[in-house]
Design a binder for these strands. Structure first.
Lengths: 146, 146
DNA sequence: CTATTTGCAAATCATTTGCAAAAAT
DNA sequence: ATTTTTGCAAATGATTTGCAAATAG
């Protein structure tokens, strides 16, 4: 019956004192399939306990980020967005008509990034790639699903 | 003797009322070969007139950005960085040891970005690519020059 | 002249932090 | 019991804005 450990489980395993509110936040993030911002997470986690404070959301997210269990993004709208970090690196395409964030991974692109850095005399440490686009009309359907 | 028009010239041609302080700011940005933030620009422009206010720098930069004459970047440190927009699109590599920003353009990468967006069913409107790296030791010299 | 812009100070917005009360081990 | 965490409210830092005085065209 061993199910994959939840974010809360893994945080606890990493030495985090698992409080009620931290569990609420971890669970809310885990239940999200988008890239919620702090307020969205606060709202979602509050559904399970309305007295959760915004500060706790901020504090918990920062802690999780510091221990490298989640990643923080900035998609250009001034608020930070979060997602659970998994082993699979990916980049993001932001649908400018809906704000929906689509994850993708392109091996050619990954290779190219390193190649470019090397050509400039650098060793790549990290990068950020975001594509901003609108659905193609008469598309083959790749972006029409919910 | 026609020299290429300055940013101030072009802004004025675009209908901007060219005040003393706006000229200071345009000139300071034009004289910059890096990607200064608002405070840096304020300091630089103030060298030619110490009573220039920070608000004017903010207001002028926003105006220039709105008329698409400069671009605003966020390299992850919380402050906005600016550069004059020219016809040549480019991406950025940030030297994490010095903060220096290196511009580059890779045709393969440009093509790939569109290809990826298309594959996902999107028409690419804009994108953001930043590489963060450190100089390679024993490098061939690409990053050793000023 | 007359509308626009400036400088200043107060306002915003997202995020952080100090501190006393509350909870975890 | 002792240390850590919470919630609140006040502090922060970047940026914006209201308003009276100054200025461009």
């Amino acid at each position: 019956m061993a199910r994959p450990p939840t974010l809360a489980d893994r945080a606890q395993a990493n030495g985090v004192k698992m409080t009620h509110q931290r569990r609420l936040i971890c669970d809310a993030l885990e239940a999200s399939d988008d890239h919620p911002d702090v307020d969205a997470l606060h709202v979602r986690a509050r559904k399970n306990d309305p007295k959760l404070s915004l500060s706790s959301v901020y504090r918990t997210l920062r802690a999780l980020e510091t221990m490298d269990m989640i990643s923080r993004h900035d998609f250009g709208d001034g608020r930070a967005r979060f997602e659970i970090k998994d082993d699979r690196h990916h980049d993001h395409l932001i649908d400018t008509t809906t704000g929906r964030v689509i994850e993708f991974l392109d091996p050619k692109l990954e290779a190219l990034k390193n190649e470019i850095a090397a050509r400039l005399g650098y060793e790549l440490q990290s990068h950020r790639l975001e594509l901003y686009g609108q659905p193609r009309k008469r598309s083959s359907g790749a972006n029409t699903a919910g």
